[in-house]
Amino acid sequence: MAEATEEQVSYWELIKNGILKENTIFRLALSLCPAIAVTNNVKNGFFMGLAVVLVQVMVNFTISAMRKFIHQRIRLPIFMLVISGWVTIVNLVMDAAVPDVYREVGMYIQLIVAFASILARAEMFASKNRIVPSVFDGIGMGTGFFIALMIISAFRELIGKGQLWGFPIIDAKPLLILILPAGGFFAVGILMAAFNWVYAKYFSSGGHSH
């Protein structure tokens, strides 16, 4: 019984790790390019984030399941094959299941193949750990990415367009630059600083060493 509780705690730790300590965008600064490209409105950010969670979990699961059979020398090409396979599946299924959404975010879904964050987790975690922890790591990292995309896209859409999910919120002249790519860099920079400030103040344990 005690052991099970301990395991649960560590799974929760894995998820928290992906959201806070090793947040793909705000802490590791990985996959910033798609983070800027897709986040000019909340809807895109939402579906992109969802697709990333799914792909990250499935990739971690697959890589972890076959980690003992893969030859070290060709592990990276194999990771890439697994990633592109899952992205293609998500792509095809989304096209069939939610065509309206797919029309808007379909092109970005294909970009997931090139996400550094997914390859990084396959290499750093899934290829060295058992299946269950790898899946939880995938959920954590994916959710961290999802949350980051939501924060950035909400910030950009709200200030750049005065809207959220297409609904008008602020009735003032919006700061258009925020929805343009250049504004994306500003937004990510500002939010990254804010995230790290909050993280350092409230979440990092006092005893850590630099």
Partner: peptide, 19 residues
């Protein structure tokens, strides 16, 4: 290595064509 790649291509190809 050859076995790895052959298996991955076959299984991956089968799954993708099914989907």
């Amino acid at each position: 290595i050859v076995a790895n790649l052959v298996v991955i291509y076959l299984v991956g190809g089968a799954i993708l064509s099914y989907v």
